[in-house]
Amino acid sequence: MRLVHNSLHDEVAGQLRERIFAGELVPGMFLDEVRLAQEMSISRTPLREALKVLTAEGLVRHEPRRGCFVNEVTEQDLDEIFPVIALLEGRCAFEAAQHATDGDLQALEELHQKLARHARARRINEYYETNFAIHETIIALARNRWLAGVIGDLRKIVKLARLQQLHAPGRLDQSLAEHLAVFAALKARDAEGAEAAMRTHLQRQRGALRELARAQPRRLA
């Protein structure tokens, strides 16, 4: 179907981004401009602009005289990103504890109940989606657009690897316990406790990914 949005390259970037997150366009894959343009019924100009957007986000890398490739998240990337995102999301939890209304906490409680159901059923993909929604909700409750903007950029890169950590032995139950600890602090309006719990949660995510990479070194380039 032909795309007709005024900001065509933004729509193209959005579609490619979703295909990357869905695993249809895998890390290291060459992005054939001719084939993609034909598939999307567009010219190569908006496609190239879209690839520039994704390159700026870190999802795509451009190699001179070779073209564009889906980016690969390395262990060094994760070592550098996770401490930063743990600090930032920890601060979001701190500010969310100060700003959340009773209605906000009720909505978060329902999300956590859903999270627990997915954990018990071992539905990893559904768990991840709900987990992502909880993080997004807490970021929004912080009401800090600067934090939200920086975290959003980092999360696009981390999203390429974060799902894998839930496959580490025992990680699903551990992740749920960590989320419940964050939520308990939020309900208690304990800003410092919420910040510490969120930072621990993110740091343990990195630890789970590291263990998984050691056990299966080919999972992460």
Rank of each mutant, 00 (worst) to 15 (best):
E195F: 01
R214A: 10
G193H: 11
H201V: 00
Q203H: 10
R218W: 13
A196H: 14
L220Y: 15
R199Y: 02
R214K: 12
A191C: 10
A196W: 08
A194N: 09
E192G: 10
T200S: 13
F183D: 01
R199A: 14
G193Y: 09
L202F: 13
A188G: 05
L209N: 00
E192T: 13
L220R: 04
L212A: 03
Q216E: 11
A184G: 06
E211C: 02
K187R: 15
R214L: 12
R204Q: 13
T200G: 11
D190C: 03
P217G: 03
L212F: 04
A194Q: 11
R214C: 04
R199E: 11
L212S: 00
L212P: 00
R204F: 06
R214Q: 13
K187E: 12
A215M: 10
L202P: 02
A208Q: 06
A208L: 03
T200Y: 05
R218L: 12
E211L: 09
G207D: 14
H201Y: 09
G193L: 06
R189Q: 11
G193N: 07
L209C: 00
A184I: 02
L212N: 01
A188I: 04
L186G: 02
Q203L: 09
L209T: 02
E192S: 10
A194L: 07
M198Q: 15
L212C: 03
A215R: 15
L202I: 15
A185G: 01
K187H: 03
F183S: 01
A184R: 15
K187A: 04
R218T: 15
T200M: 08
H201F: 09
L220K: 05
Q205I: 05
A194V: 06
A213K: 15
A185E: 05
K187G: 03
D190A: 04
L186M: 04
Q205F: 06
A208N: 14
